[in-house]
Write a protein that binds this DNA or RNA. Structure first.
Lengths: 334, 334
DNA sequence: TTGTAGGCGTTATCAT
DNA sequence: ATGATAACGCCTACAA
């Protein structure tokens, strides 16, 4: 592989000049630039990115830590991050945290040791304090789908309250009044904020909130089945049910169908997230779209702006979810 | 950040010795080793991976190119690759090819320019010849889910013929005789090999193969709906249908349900691949499991063995699919 | 505008 | 077993 040195010899200039034409960061006369470029072409020169990194103390690599590589979110998120970064000539190093504190910390350590210029993390187990501490370090960190007050400028998050509101509001607009809600584990802020939105939609229309119509699930399919079973056993009446995520909605749908409900005539079911399988459920799941892909892109832009000083990027820190009407919700049938 | 130089001073030894204890590749006396290790601890020394790479011309990074980051396969595949490589202290650089020849080539170029020690690619658009040419280069390449004759030792692939056989055989064992088949585009070897397996299963039981019961789809949902529509219009009779992948199976299921078929009583539907949403379809899709996760791990092991000389790894180049019985297939009902 | 020379933090080859 | 010392390929003041 040709080096900058050989190029300089062939072009009859110095190392420095070759470096300059590569990096376009200093004035080089048209004539010499052409000479150098021709030499590079002739030798099929490719810069050695590692040597560049060592000399400039910049690796042009961004570390990304996600919970699971095969989760329903991950793909979209990574796709967003990668497309943006790749277009900028940066590369993405990826690793996983498996939602376990130790592994998440390990992953972050690993990324640091790889001398990433910045790290984008999607972590769940690790505490806010830990993240705040981390952010004081030399490598900038950016948080995906998580909001930490003291780190606002480094967060990309979703307006979960609004999502919860939209979900319930849509049902109310269709005439539903008795709306059950299956929440996620409330210690997760996503889950509690979505619930808050639900309550606001109710209150806005003077519909009282009944504890009887609330079940705390686990964000998994079982949470959906257990929740619906719970409501049925309690003998409360309800014509619609909103689930705090699509997995639980899927669970509810399965349980409902097994127990003779016609969907959506007998029961409207609303999801949240719009993960890939939502479109494969039967009936197709009406849900709240969580723009993970866009958020991924945005986190990359944030890095580009803050770390690589790219300008004129419009940065948006919090994203708004939208209602995605499909087939699992219909108007109230008395 | 402390450097090897500071460690050597603190420990009262030379650079070389410090390097030796780091790499455990040369004899160092117990005493000095301890001294050095203590110095490293005291300075909180972390090796600079970039400098290591430059000096050793080894980046410890493996490039991975996949078609789509959000496809149904990708997650599993990446999860397999990452877990294995990460455990070995290597890191994974990822990028996408979008199933377009130019982009795939770009992606490979990109990975090369990042000085990866090896690259694992999952490409569709690029030709065998191109890959063969590539493999003559300096950076070893490994092929996922693709079989190229001249590159056997660098391929991890699935026994698609066996999968096609298993799918149809399962149906035959349940008493079905009129089995329709929706294939993928036959220029893709996956598609044609799966079809070959189907035919073998038929022949084995002396069931004739009728062109009337074959439809060439596109590996997408539409292929499934179009295929079923085609068979119905042709007025051929069939009690089961095997689709060459799960997307098409999903399409067939939707069309069948919309047209009054009870599933699976009126029509058994078999998929192929076992992508994540297969379990969310209604009824749950009986399908052929494609062990993408294991294949991902194996490709990583291949790299570990060939590039990093790790020993005692059991390498398996071709994987066998298995039947996954769920709810979309039932026994023949006269 | 162009060239010179000193790093960047390791590895690896010789000696000793 | 240990120590000098020359690479590794490039960047970047500083000089010219």
């Amino acid at each position: 592989m040709a080096t900058i040195y050989e190029v300089s010899k062939l072009a009859g200039v110095s190392l420095a000049t070759v470096s300059r034409v590569m990096n376009k960061n200093a004035k080089v006369s048209e004539k010499t630039r052409v000479k150098v470029e021709e030499a590079m072409k002739e030798l099929n020169y490719r810069p050695n990115s590692i040597a560049q990194s060592l000399a400039s103390s910049r690796s042009n690599s961004i570390g990304v830590l996600v919970s699971e590589l095969h989760g329903p979110f991950f793909g979209q998120m990574m796709a967003g991050i990668e497309s943006e970064l790749r277009a900028a000539g940066k590369h993405v190093i990826i690793t996983t945290g498996h939602s376990e504190e130790e592994k998440e910390k390990d992953g972050i350590e690993f990324l640091f040791s790889r001398s990433c210029d910045a790290i984008i993390i999607h972590v769940e187990a690790v505490s806010d304090e830990y993240l705040i501490e981390l952010s004081k370090g030399k490598t900038p960190i950016y948080l995906m789908i998580r909001y930490v007050d003291k780190l606002v400028d480094n967060c990309i998050s979703l307006d979960n309250e609004m999502g919860g509101y939209l979900a319930t509001k849509a049902l109310i607009d269709l005439g539903h009044k008795d709306i059950a809600y299956i929440a996620g584990p409330l210690f997760k802020t996503d889950a509690s904020t979505r619930l808050t939105g639900h309550k606001r939609a109710l209150a806005e229309q003077n519909i009282p909130f009944y504890e009887n119509l609330l079940y705390i699930g686990d964000f998994k399919e079982t949470g959906g089945t257990e929740g619906l079973k719970h409501f049925i056993n309690k003998k409360v009446s309800f014509s619609a049910i909103v689930c705090a995520n699509d997995e639980m909605a899927s669970g509810s749908m399965k349980y409902a169908r097994e127990h003779g409900f016609r969907l959506p005539e007998d029961l409207s079911i609303m999801g949240f997230d719009n993960v890939n399988f939502a479109n494969y459920l039967y009936p197709k799941l009406t849900t709240i779209d969580n723009p993970v892909y866009s958020m991924g892109r945005m986190s990359a832009k944030l890095v580009l702006q803050n770390v690589y000083k790219v300008e004129d990027l419009h940065i948006q820190h919090v994203f708004s979810p939208t209602l995605l009407s499909r087939k699992s919700v219909t108007k109230f049938q008395p």
